[in-house]
Write a protein that binds this DNA or RNA. Structure first.
Lengths: 336, 336
DNA sequence: GTGAAAGCGCTAACAC
DNA sequence: GTGTTAGCGCTTTCAC
């Protein structure tokens, strides 16, 4: 069995308290004792048990993270930033990949509770009643990243999705496009579904451009859905000359569909994506996209969460709204 | 504070032992007591502390995972499969994303030790002496996934990289190509560096095709490196008509470089990738690739690791070698 | 069938 | 400065 603190104490000829003290860097230990303890620790290859520590300290330094899909370019990037920031602050991650499996999410939420994680990060907004209920009862600091659930009580780190979508659409309008299609997400999602759709609508209306029902389609943010939806758009008579897709994955699917139909981006169709994921630089033509500050979003999420964890007062929290910006690449061109 | 087993016992009017018994599904409890306990648990919203349990059971149901880069298409997919399998078996994941940071890896290995994780999964083979030493001393079951370190003692779940590379090269040869370039990985890596290179060399030699130094380049598996290396290849006089890249990421970088030079895949250059990641279907032309059974690899890794964890005897283990196969898509064409 | 009590490995009063 | 000891929340002999 692994050596315990008692073994170290015996070997160093001191009490366990003293060992505990040098372990925790307290000062009230004479140098020679400290040295003896350190030597004993080295010789025994002793590593304190985080389990036992957590039990008495009532703090695990664990953060539970619920990710919709780690294989997505957007989420894996934000996860990587979360992990980096957590690690720098001595926190460790318990990762749950839900893939739209509500049972799995509930199960994990329960695991997080059993594990007594110090905080939880959630990156989706498809909260059904059961989940919402569970979250409220948990009594553990929770933060949402990249989404803002309807409940005002939850704190989020997000961008202004409405304005970002408005700006993206506006960009196409300024390029001279008038028939601009929209490839949307799930309208049950407020942040990434509704807000982006409304931003698009508003930009169109503000320029007195008509909203054509046929040019507006909703999917699930994924490549395949972008692919399928664009084929529908292309089949319209009087098809759009430009399209705004609410995720880069969808935009890439759209690009592929255009190409597979023997047409070209941006000559036959201009496309602007959303997220600013790695994909934008990976495809040809490179994808113009409304960029979310993904790295920063992950970083800030963890920092605010740790703040919440440390805060005894449980002070009320504001959402953090980060800045978006359009990165122009090669997937759009001037029209007419 | 969260209710504890004692609170449940009091509320149900039984001893903590009895509560513990119904918690752990033992049979020697009368039905009416069992009911009372269950009701008390519900009313209190009691969830047993995994921490306290781990302490006494000496089992955490935690698996530490060391991933080179979660944002890579290959690793995020295998991670997702690992997470799924672990979760199904009641194990949770502590994820470490190292990004070639050896200090971070050492730190995490230490965290894994402190946390008393039940097992560790490592997905790279760049083990320096310090890490190797640490791993040996750990005394925790360890398994390598997708790589096989030099030490025979470590167990791995892999494909036969040598033969896979041989087969990939062979495919290009059978298409009539004779000047076949190679875009390799890090030659310090046995599995994905050396073995794939040797497979390529052997396939060329077996067909009496010359190995042209200029046509062989080494990088770091990433898109950018594929991009840069292919530009070098294209600059050669008598440039290759086909290229084998040892990762899909590199292959995609290569495709982009070809296109950015005003050339076309596969007309001017045939490209075969390696991994069978999601990227293969995302790019145009779609990428022909030597596919690793990524999902299965993750699944088997976890299953074997759990076997090792459960096994008191510490029985010697064999590596698991899974089957590779070439998936032909649109990035290669017949030559001459 | 059920409960009392010891102990898992550690920290933190409290005493000296 | 250092050591004794009482828990942290649970499981598990061992008695009844």
């Amino acid at each position: 069995m692994a050596p315990k603190i008692k073994d170290v104490a015996k070997k160093a000829g001191v009490s366990v308290t003293t060992v505990s003290r040098v372990l925790n860097g307290e000062k009230y230990v004479k140098d020679d004792l400290k040295d003896r303890v350190k030597r004993a620790i080295d010789e025994l290859g002793y590593t304190p048990s985080h389990i036992a520590r957590s039990l008495v300290r009532k703090k695990t330094n664990l953060i539970g993270v619920i990710v919709p899909d780690v294989t997505s370019s957007f989420y894996s990037t934000i996860l990587s930033s979360i992990e980096k920031t957590a690690s720098m602050n001595e926190y460790n991650l318990l990762v749950c990949n839900i893939i739209e499996d509500i049972d799995k999410e509930l199960k994990y939420l329960n695991v997080f509770k059993e594990m007594r994680v110090d905080g939880i990060i959630i990156m989706h907004e498809k909260l059904n009643d059961e989940i919402r209920d569970m979250i409220h009862k948990l009594g553990i600091p929770i933060i949402f990243s990249s989404v803002k659930p309807t409940e005002q009580a939850f704190v989020s780190v997000i961008i202004d999705d409405y304005t970002a979508a408005y700006d993206a659409t506006r960009y196409l309008i300024e390029l001279g496009h008038e028939r601009i299609g929209f490839i949307g997400g799930d309208m049950r999602d407020v942040t990434s579904g509704q807000n982006r759709y409304i931003g698009y609508c508003r930009a169109m209306a503000d320029s007195s451009l008509p909203l054509v029902d046929e040019h507006v389609r909703f999917g699930d943010y994924k490549t395949q859905s972008g692919y399928d939806l664009i084929r529908e758009l292309l089949a319209c008579d009087n098809r759009p000359t430009a399209v705004f897709a609410v995720s880069d994955d969808m935009a890439v699917g759209a690009m592929n569909a255009v190409r597979d139909q023997g047409l070209a981006v941006p000559d036959d169709l201009s496309i602007v994506g959303f997220d600013g994921s790695q994909l934008t630089e990976l495809v040809r033509p490179r994808l113009t996209s409304m960029e979310q500050p993904i790295q920063e979003m992950g970083k800030v999420t963890v920092e605010v969460l740790i703040d919440m964890i440390m805060d005894q007062e449980d002070a009320p929290r504001q959402d953090v709204v980060l800045r978006h910006h359009l990165v122009v690449r090669d997937s759009c061109r001037q029209h007419g």
